Simulated scan of single mutants.
Amino acid sequence: MKRNKKEIVLWHEFDGPGDTSIEVLEEICRLYTERFGIQVTPQVMNITALIAGLSRVKETGQGPHLAMVPADMSSYVEKGLYSEVPDGLFADVLTEAALSTMQMNGVQYGVPVLRGNHLVVYYNKEIYASAPTSWDVFEEAAEKLTAQDIVPIGADLKEGYWFIPFLSAFGGWPVEAGQPNIVTPEMKQALQFIREKMDQGVLASLDGSTGLLEQFIGGKVGAIISGEWIYNHLDKHMKDKLAVCQLPVIEGRQSLSMSSSIGLIYPNHSLTSGEREHILSFTRFMLSDECQSMWAVKVQRIPAHEEVLNRLAASTTPNKQNILSLLGNTRPMPTHPFMIHVWESMHTGLIELDSSNAEQALEKIDQTIHESLNAL
């Protein structure tokens, strides 16, 4: 095949050692390049760098042709100069529910490729004989496990997404009536709860892409709260020791994770560029039965393509069926433009909590959200 010298650049953040999704993304890019003669170059970076890069597109005029991002990053539309996706273009393979995860004010700014993106509890069956679906189980096991140098449960508690199950268990949610809702009594209760449980040694805060996984696989943490996206890595390393269950009930309330999608957005108005047809052709290729099946089979992700998803649900393992069923116990991730500032403020507060108390952390959240919104 004659090679075309044109190149399409795709940014993504499948960067952690446990995020095997990078294997399929790179393979899809290679296949497209070989079959269509258009070079698709994936560029990996961590989520902080990806956010920073997309946030500077309007300022610098520089950006990729596509980026594969969590759905809430559709809200970076103004800073990232996102192209609108033509109406109905992918309605033959994606449901309206899937498409809506990457809409902003009713306008389509992204195309979902993967679904789910939700948090579950992974637990070691050699440590917990049955599913630890209530927080009481972790507290009751704490003395015995601590004596064995095992932490009952871990999570990445410097990241707002991991904090949502605790906030939701106390009746909180970061959006109310279309406005930020993070300086609340429920937020303070959730912050107090995790500070107390960390102090008691029941709960450990560990980096979600490294320490959390390593210590869980190594048997130093009995259970972890983590994303469906990490299942393939854990399954490979833990095999029959690994099990999955719902997020825990805390003080009588069920924890809820957010759910969303991961999909393609088009920064720097790339769909008005000379590469428009190649970009849309690559998007269509990503949504093909072939590529969607690769995500499901090779790295055990949840495809956005409805038919492929239905096949997966009917034929997968009990652990994966649990993960799929737990999608029903989630709330859609908000995609309001102000969510950029909500996540930043929660992150700042959680870092503060690591070395102080709930009241100081809440003050930090309050200060940060007001400064961010006032700067708009």
Rank of each mutant, 00 (worst) to 15 (best):
207 D>Y: 02
231 Y>S: 13
213 L>K: 10
205 S>H: 05
160 G>F: 05
201 G>D: 09
220 K>W: 06
227 G>Y: 07
250 I>R: 01
205 S>M: 05
206 L>E: 05
181 N>Q: 08
258 M>L: 15
198 M>D: 00
163 F>G: 11
260 S>F: 02
190 A>H: 00
224 I>Q: 06
232 N>Y: 12
257 S>Y: 00
212 L>W: 02
178 G>R: 07
242 L>S: 10
239 K>W: 02
204 A>L: 09
267 P>T: 08
208 G>Q: 01
166 F>A: 05
205 S>W: 05
265 I>C: 08
208 G>K: 01
156 D>K: 08
211 G>N: 14
257 S>Q: 03
254 Q>H: 06
250 I>W: 00
263 G>R: 09
262 I>M: 09
264 L>S: 04
170 F>H: 10
210 T>I: 09
164 I>K: 03
269 H>Y: 13
265 I>T: 14
196 E>H: 06
234 L>P: 04
205 S>F: 06
152 P>K: 09
176 E>R: 15
204 A>Y: 08
166 F>D: 01
267 P>N: 11
217 I>A: 14
215 Q>M: 13
222 G>P: 11
186 E>V: 01
252 G>K: 13
235 D>R: 15
257 S>P: 01
239 K>H: 12
201 G>A: 09
268 N>G: 09
212 L>K: 11
193 F>I: 02
206 L>H: 03
172 G>V: 09
176 E>W: 05
217 I>R: 04
185 P>A: 04
179 Q>N: 12
248 P>W: 07
216 F>P: 08
258 M>F: 09
264 L>G: 02
247 L>G: 01
237 H>Q: 15
176 E>N: 11
263 G>D: 10
190 A>T: 02
160 G>T: 04
217 I>N: 07
220 K>D: 07
160 G>Y: 05
249 V>N: 11
189 Q>P: 00
218 G>H: 12
207 D>V: 03
200 Q>K: 11
261 S>D: 13
227 G>T: 14
196 E>Q: 12
259 S>P: 00
178 G>A: 11
201 G>S: 08
238 M>G: 14
250 I>C: 04
172 G>D: 04
265 I>E: 03
171 G>T: 05
229 W>N: 14
163 F>E: 13
267 P>L: 10
215 Q>E: 10
267 P>F: 06
236 K>F: 00
225 I>G: 07
242 L>F: 11
265 I>S: 04
248 P>Y: 10
209 S>F: 10
156 D>L: 06
192 Q>H: 06
267 P>E: 11
185 P>G: 04
219 G>Q: 12
168 S>L: 03
185 P>R: 03
203 L>T: 10
160 G>I: 10
171 G>Q: 06
212 L>P: 03
194 I>D: 01
255 S>E: 06
169 A>W: 01
209 S>P: 01
198 M>N: 09
251 E>S: 13
256 L>I: 13
202 V>W: 02
156 D>H: 15
